[in-house]
Each structure stands twice: as C-alpha cells, then as structure tokens.
C-alpha cells in the first residue's frame, strides 16, 4: 500500500475528535476563477473537513439543475482542466492539510490524457478522485492507474448496489466510500435519514473505510442527522445554489458572493460540530 493520503489522515483525525466530517462541494471556477479560489480558500475556516471540487463538464448526466448550472457558469467563465488544477495549486499554497477530491466525469480526463492527468493532479495537491461514469467494470481506465499514482479512488455506492455487487464496488475503493443516498440526480429530493442509517450499517459490514453520504443534504439539520449515522455528510447543490443567489443576472460575482457562500458553509458545518 502507498503512504496515507490527506484523506486518510483527515478521517483518522475526525475519529480522534469523535465527530463526523463535513464535505463541501463547489464547481471549480464557479462563478469565475478568482472568486472560486477565494471560496475554496475560505472553506476550511468555514468548517469544511474535505473539499470536493467539481471538474466542470458540458454533459453532467448524474447532476441535477443546480450543479449543471454551476458547471456551465464555470465553463462560460473559461474553466478547463488546467485551470482546475491551478485552483488546487493556489489552494495548496496556503493549506497543506485539507483534502481535495476532484469529482466529475471521465471525458475531460480522457482527453487530457490519463497518465498526464494523474501526474499533474498529484503534483498539484489533489488527494482523491470521484468519477461518476467509471463503475468497477471500467477499473483499468483510471482507477487502477490512480491508485498506482498514490491517489485515492473513491467509489460511489448506491441504493441499487446490492450485497452481491457491493464487494466489487468496494474492492479498489480507497480513502472513503461515497454513499449516494437515493436513486436520482444531485440536489433534487431530500435525504431520508432512516434509509441512510441502514445503508451505512450495511456498508460497514463490508468495509472498514469511512462512509460519506451525499445527495439530498441541504440544511444544517440534515447535515447533523446524516453526520450522526455516517462518517461525513456531503453538501453540493445547496452550496452552489447559495453561490448562484449572490450573482448578478448574467452570472457575475458580487461583493456578497464570497462572504455569503462561506457563511452558509459555516452554518452547514456546524451540523457536525454541535
């Protein structure tokens, strides 16, 4: 095995603290590069234990309207893979502890070139990858090379992943397991915490990895409830919707964008601290 990543260290530290983690998702470059960097830099202080940075893609098949819109805002403002990695570098220059997970779809990585991407991501300070459209059946594409390169490959487990399939899903997963709390796209329905409690117990019977839960978590109370059941709660759509609320009509940032987004992140983060 390779050396522990920032993700491994962060979940070990959370265990020591005796609390669950808060994972904050934003799209890289939303609403523009500089504002995005300011938001990301402010997230740890606001209480994000892990940052999930979306790699914008024109055709995000598993995302609902909020994250679709956020990715398109970023693309319109000139986001691309090089700039996403620049954001990570910019963040790392001031924070060497908070884990960064890149989340997105495979095509931009495939076009960038898998080997080049893994080398550049590792060098920039990325710790893990969540690639929605790479199930275990396609592990040789990116998962195995990523593990080889010392990055965590975080797999999504879903309500349709039954006990027979779960071992295959968990096999090459590292860092943590991301449980998708519902069948659906991001940011639509509300999380059902009873279902989550049962699902997390099922995952833990198959794996020692920490379990983060996402999809449908929008409020501090939901963060608290999911945090009580799992090792971390992920909020994405609600956070990028908050960013959207602060923008001008044509999608440009205002003086409210950074402080209000971070204030909302802090409210959510309080859910795992009280």
């Amino acid at each position: 095995m390779t050396a522990p990543t920032r993700i491994d260290k962060r979940f070990a530290a959370l265990k020591q603290e005796g609390r669950s983690g808060f994972v904050a998702y934003v799209s890289a470059g939303d609403p523009d590069h500089d504002t995005s960097l300011e938001i990301i830099r402010g997230l740890p202080k606001a209480g994000a234990d892990v940052i999930e940075l979306g790699m914008p893609f024109t055709d995000p098949m598993a995302d609902g309207p909020a994250i679709q819109a956020s990715g398109l805002r970023a693309l319109r403002a000139g986001a691309n893979m090089n700039k996403t990695l620049d954001l990570v570098r910019g963040f790392r220059s001031g924070d060497d502890d908070t884990p960064i997970v890149l989340m997105g779809y495979y095509n931009p990585i495939y076009v960038y070139g898998v080997d080049r991407f893994l080398a550049d991501a590792k060098q920039a300070g990325v710790d893990g990858l969540i690639i929605v459209d790479l199930p275990p059946e396609e592990d040789s594409e990116l998962c195995l090379p990523a593990l080889e390169a010392g990055l965590n490959f975080i797999r999504l487990a879903t309500p349709t992943t039954d006990d027979k399939r779960l071992p295959a899903v968990l096999k090459n997963t590292s860092g943590f397991v991301y449980y998708v709390s519902m069948t659906g796209v991001t940011g639509t329905k509300d999380v059902n915490t009873d279902h989550v409690t049962g699902a997390v117990a099922r995952l833990r019977s198959h794996s020692d990895l920490p379990v983060a839960v996402g999809f449908g978590i929008k409020t501090p109370d939901q963060v608290r409830a999911v945090g009580a059941a799992a090792n971390a709660a992920v909020v994405g759509s609600a956070l990028v919707s908050k960013i959207a609320e602060t923008l001008t009509e044509d999608g440009r940032p205002t003086p409210k964008t950074v402080p209000e987004s971070l204030a909302f992140a802090a409210e959510l983060a309080a859910g795992v601290r009280t």
């Binding site: 598993a62 929605v132 199930p135 059946e137 879903t158 309500p159 349709t160 399939r165 998708v180 069948t183």
Partner: peptide
C-alpha cells in the same frame, strides 16, 4: 463480454445504473 468493439464501447455509467 465487456461490451467492447476494439477500444470502443464499454459501460461508462453511474453506479446506480450498473446493476440494471
């Protein structure tokens, strides 16, 4: 068996759909 025609094809879908 994995649905490949040479390097093309495959099953690049979200986990939710994979069992189906």
């Amino acid at each position: 068996e994995e649905g490949h025609f040479g390097i093309y094809g495959g099953r690049y879908v979200a986990e939710t759909l994979m069992p189906l």
